[in-house]
Design a protein around this nucleic acid. Structure first.
Length: 409
RNA sequence: GGGUAGGUGGCAGAGUGGUCAAUUGCACCAGACUGUAAAUCUGGCCUCUUCGGAGUUCGGGGGUUCGAAUCCCUCCCUACCCA
């Protein structure tokens, strides 16, 4: 009976739920508090500090500024799965992703425009980057037919035949109203033949040109995507052609598509160096914490990956001491937080034992808490990296992180 | 006391002479996850193993048979019905 007594023990002294504001640039916080689109901020990128190839900078968008290097949580269908925008913000996110392919299929980009655009529709007043759907053409490849005109494919929702062209991808992203849009690209698998890779690069360049031509929305930045796989001369050819078109930002696509991490790591410095120094560089779809650090060292400014949220839903927590599988029996009676010292909502209030219980009982709060923690971990890692770059000690920061991650396993 | 139906691996529950170390689900134990068709998927789950196999299992005991979880006898136990 004592366990259910209302007055037993008195309330635990909980700190007020303070957002992790210390990680965010203050204009962004002000923008959030205002809760609306000011429309005064143009798209700019300022390089503020370098440390070797690593860079720290400031990106501004109509929906707020972004400190780089930045990690962008993925919100494919207009939601970072399992989290409210408020939780994503409190974890320290400055910008999130949305997806052209998914949102065009459901609920439809026209509908979202009608309802005030994606920011308003999903209640995320901060910056949004939308992916073009090029990756879906690759990942749903069995049912896709690619021609110069565009990609014909079957909807994964109802099987209907649809076509995504460069122009349509731009229109959809216009309707969504994202701050940064991506060109439609062709993303071949790592083991594609040299001919296929070359064809994909040429098509990607032609499509980028068409996107550029078709793009008219001044308050939205359109980024180009460099393909070419692991062939550096193809990458260079692609990059040169795209740079000549003068995009406000450039992405490296076609990584983490089947090649080993070592191979990707080895290729990144040269590929990043192909991109203009004064423009933001975005490594698409990457990756694990170690991949982020390697990318930053190579001169990348922006990253996105489903890993913190997907793995969080699947009971894996990233921590400064390496990954933790909360479904494992060893956590059954562990009273310590997922990551000691972490100031995220999950770590401030719950034990590993409780999170373990949530996953064992298949309760939806488990995936929510670990998604939240993982995003907080990723964003904290990036904040620390930014600081390390500014203090010219990124290499030792990276080495220290790696040593700690590997020591635990 | 009489009758009926049953007793199978942690649980539920298939199998009813050889292709059965035994379908399946759950539970349990691990692993994977990189511009999200993923709150998903994979593997393991009697013992030992040089991973090729080997040895013991289907309530207990006995028997029939070349061969039994499966057929027979007997004992024990469970559920329901009748007294």
């Amino acid at each position: 009976m004592q366990g259910i007594s209302a007055s037993a023990g008195g309330p635990v002294d909980r700190q007020a739920e303070q957002p992790c504001y210390h990680m965010l640039p203050s204009p962004w916080v002000a923008h959030w508090e205002a809760g609306c689109y000011s429309g005064t901020m143009a798209f700019t990128f300022t390089l503020q500090a370098t440390d070797g190839a690593a860079r720290a900078g400031l990106l501004t968008t109509p929906h707020g500024p972004i400190e780089t290097p930045v990690f962008m949580p993925v919100g494919t269908q207009g939601t970072v799965k399992g989290l409210t925008p408020e939780m994503v913000r409190q974890a320290g996110a400055q910008i999130i992703l949305g997806n052209t392919y998914h949102l065009a299929l459901r609920p439809g980009d026209e509908l979202i425009r009608e309802l005030g655009g994606l920011h308003r529709f999903m209640n995320w007043p901060g910056p949004i980057l939308t992916d073009s759907g090029g990756f879906q053409v690759f990942s749903l490849a069995t049912q896709v037919k690619i021609t110069d005109q565009g990609a014909k494919f079957r909807s994964h929702i109802d099987g209907s035949l649809l076509e995504l062209t460069p122009e349509r991808a731009v229109d959809i992203q216009h309707n969504l109203g994202s701050d940064i849009a991506m060109v439609l690209d062709e993303c071949p698998p790592a083991d594609a033949s040299p001919e296929a890779m070359r064809a994909a690069v040429q098509r990607t360049i032609r499509w980028a040109e068409r996107c550029r031509q078709h793009h008219s929305r001044r308050e939205q930045a359109l980024f180009a995507i460099v393909q070419g796989g692991l062939n550096l001369s193809l990458r260079a050819e692609c990059a040169h052609a795209l740079v000549a078109l003068d995009f406000p930002g450039y992405a490296l696509g076609g990584f983490s598509v089947g090649e080993t991490a070592e191979v990707m790591h080895a290729a990144l410095p040269a590929c990043a160096a192909l991109l203009p120094e004064e423009k933001p560089r975005y490594l698409m779809g990457v990756g694990r914490p170690i991949d982020l650090l390697v990318g930053i060292a190579a001169g990348i400014d922006m990253f996105d990956c489903v890993m913190p949220t997907r793995n969080g839903r699947n009971a894996l927590a990233f921590t400064a001491d390496g990954p933790l599988r909360l479904r494992n029996a060893q956590h059954r009676r562990d009273p310590s937080p997922v990551e000691p010292g972490c100031d995220c909502y999950c770590c401030r209030h719950y034990s590993r034992a409780y999170v373990h219980h949530l996953f064992a009982a298949d309760e939806m709060l488990g995936p929510t808490l670990l998604s939240l923690h993982n995003i907080a971990f990723y964003l904290r890692l990036m904040a620390q990296a930014r600081q390390a770059i500014r203090e010219k000690r990124f290499a030792s920061f990276q080495a220290a992180c790696l040593a700690r991650w590997s020591a635990a396993s």
